[in-house]
Design a protein around this nucleic acid. Structure first.
Lengths: 150, 150
DNA sequence: TATTGTTATACTCTATAACTATA
DNA sequence: TATAGTTATAGAGTATAACAATA
């Protein structure tokens, strides 16, 4: 975190290196499986943008930055979401260049349903698990949160 | 939030439902962060196909099925990988409709480098962690493996 | 002149359908 | 006739560059 950021001169500790690989692969496989098993009619990136707006409504520029896509790309995504009745535009009266975006009721319902579907995928697999293992996973979820944010 | 509207049979246990959400989000965030932070010049789906071939060489049809894309789509991906010197074709002498695919030395090196880069991303974050927390994550990685395969 | 968002254009990935060559 | 793979064509997502409207 201090100086050279690019290279991989890192850990020198083979145990940590192996653990890093195992955790990364486990997370990526879970993410992939969730994505593939819960495929809906709405494209992934549409859902992603919609979920962002459900967290916090904002402008097109904000959304493009938060989703890490270009502004023209976000323009198209927004157009599709508005077309589909999932997002509504509202021009800012103070600065009329700006357009605020927020999910419609239907958009909110779609996000909630999608989230529930994906959570169910995981929940059904957790119910068969010993309570002690679930406790381990609960700790791990917290630790992984630190990994990402830290 | 999100009680009904899902159409799924809920777990009925709110503790497990909450845990399912936390674990899923943690995994998806880790996967996303790894993907964004370790972006290379080679497109993601090329790397993905190449990694499959590094695990186990096979035919174009196999690869399309394993990657869950159409045959024509895989044809293009393979063409790009061969063009880039990362994969080599070899016609089956027994059935000349079939083409075997395998990574070249350069392809193997690229996959190894990519994997190392991504693992380093995680390893750097693990080194600052108490050993007990690493042990928790090691257990969790194993449990998440069961979640995906079971 | 700077900023917000859109349009213009081009490239890539994807899919279905039609084709080639083998079997 | 069936199968493995490719080519033809079209649709969708992405990007950069150029533009319009507003500040």
């Amino acid at each position: 975190m201090s100086d050279d950021t690019a290279g991989q001169q890192r850990p020198a500790n083979p145990e940590i290196a192996g653990l890093a690989h195992d955790i990364r692969m486990a997370c990526m496989r879970v993410a992939r499986q969730v994505r593939l098993d819960s495929a809906t009619e709405v494209p992934t990136h549409h859902l992603s943008a919609l979920a962002r707006l459900a967290e916090a409504p904002g402008t097109a520029g904000d959304l493009a930055e938060r989703e890490r896509v270009s502004a023209p790309s976000m323009t198209k995504t927004i157009a599709a979401l508005v077309e589909g009745g999932l997002v509504q535009r509202q021009t800012d009266s103070a600065d009329r260049r700006v357009t605020f975006l927020a999910p419609t009721i239907r958009g909110q319902r779609l996000i909630a349903a999608e989230r529930a579907s994906r959570d169910d995928w995981m929940a059904q697999r957790l119910t068969d698990m010993p309570a002690r293992d679930r406790a381990t996973l609960a700790r791990a979820a917290d630790l992984l949160g630190q990994v990402v944010s830290g």
